[in-house]
């Protein structure tokens, strides 16, 4: 079974700690790795792809140590760095990468064609890499990671420089690979885009894994975090007056026909609001949390850390 496993992994770079006691196990499907710059995302990717070894703990791919040659048979890696053999064409580059997996020339050609087709680069693959746009280079990097049909796919910032239409295509491709049983780990800053397809989200803050699960799970764990809620009710002003007296509410603002409520403890607030609405003192027409997106969750976790 395709699996990435980090067991109490710590990695030092001299006196600097890259990641600190990170543990997780990922199975088939798409997982997203979030974190600010310097949070440790690239360290996780380098460890998982066997470029570096953990200082403490163990990293394994399908049960094999990630550093080992055998583990790399199951691995496809799309690095974040924009480096190529510039004089080669996209086609030659991907073919060479496939050949390095041990395929014969004929088989490598076939797989190269398939992979280029998959990332939408078939028609433009014969040009030298030096002439490619950033988005095209990104697709070539993806093609070399996909061409040997790996069980585990590590994608470090795979959407950087790709145009919006291309992003949609690639996201569909990642979702498709996840559905087919491939374990896809995407490290990205594009939170809003991958939250739709990531079944698991890993949030790294300053080298620590501060949250793991689906985005909904993470939200539910964070029930008591501050939240901004929009309310539409009738009558509006008495409700505002009542809410301002509540312990859980930090501020209330009237915005036209809507109340914008800044809540200190979301879980407690919703329970009390439910109870008050059931008593029928006012009629609640609409209730919408305004900052439940992944960005807001991440921002909160980062601040708390």
């Amino acid at each position: 079974m395709a699996e990435i496993c980090f067991d109490q992994v710590t990695r030092f770079y001299g006196p600097v700690i890259g990641i600190n006691q990170v543990s997780f196990t990922l199975g088939p499907g798409v997982a997203a790795l979030f974190g600010a710059n310097g949070a440790g995302k690239s360290t996780v990717m380098r460890l998982a792809s066997g470029q570096i070894r953990p200082s403490l703990g163990q990293v394994s791919i399908n049960g094999l140590p990630a550093w080992s040659t055998l583990a790399k048979r199951h691995l496809g890696y799309c690095p974040d760095v924009d480096r190529f053999y510039e004089e080669m064409s996209g086609w030659e580059f991907v073919q060479f990468m496939v050949q390095l997996h041990g395929y014969s020339s004929r088989e490598a050609r076939r797989r190269t064609e398939e992979a280029l087709e998959l990332v939408g680069m078939s028609a433009r693959a014969q040009r030298p890499l030096a002439t490619y746009s950033q988005g095209m280079r990104q697709r070539i990097k993806l093609a070399q990671a996909l061409a040997h049909q790996p069980e585990v796919l590590l994608l470090d910032e795979p959407l950087a420089g790709v145009d919006p239409g291309g992003r949609r295509q690639l996201l569909e491709l990642f979702a498709h690979l996840g559905d087919q049983g491939c374990t896809v780990l995407i490290s990205t800053h594009m939170l809003e885009e991958v939250e739709q397809l990531a079944q698991v989200v890993l949030v790294l803050v300053q080298g620590r894994l501060v949250a793991q699960g689906t985005l909904d799970e993470i939200r539910s764990w964070l029930a008591d975090r501050p939240l901004i809620v929009a309310l539409e009710a009738e009558p509006l002003r008495p409700l505002a007056g009542e809410l301002i007296g509540w312990e859980e509410v930090r501020s209330v603002q009237i915005d036209g026909s809507c109340l914008v409520v800044q809540v200190r403890q979301a879980g407690m607030f919703f329970r009390r609001l439910n109870a008050a609405a059931a008593q029928g003192r006012w009629q609640l027409r609409r209730m919408e949390p305004l900052d439940t997106g992944a960005e807001a969750v991440f921002r909160y976790l980062h601040q708390r850390s």
Partner: peptide, 15 residues
Amino acid sequence: EEGTLVFLLTRPLPR
């Protein structure tokens, strides 16, 4: 120096 070594080191070839 060009940074392409990463492509070789992540292939199933013994180092």
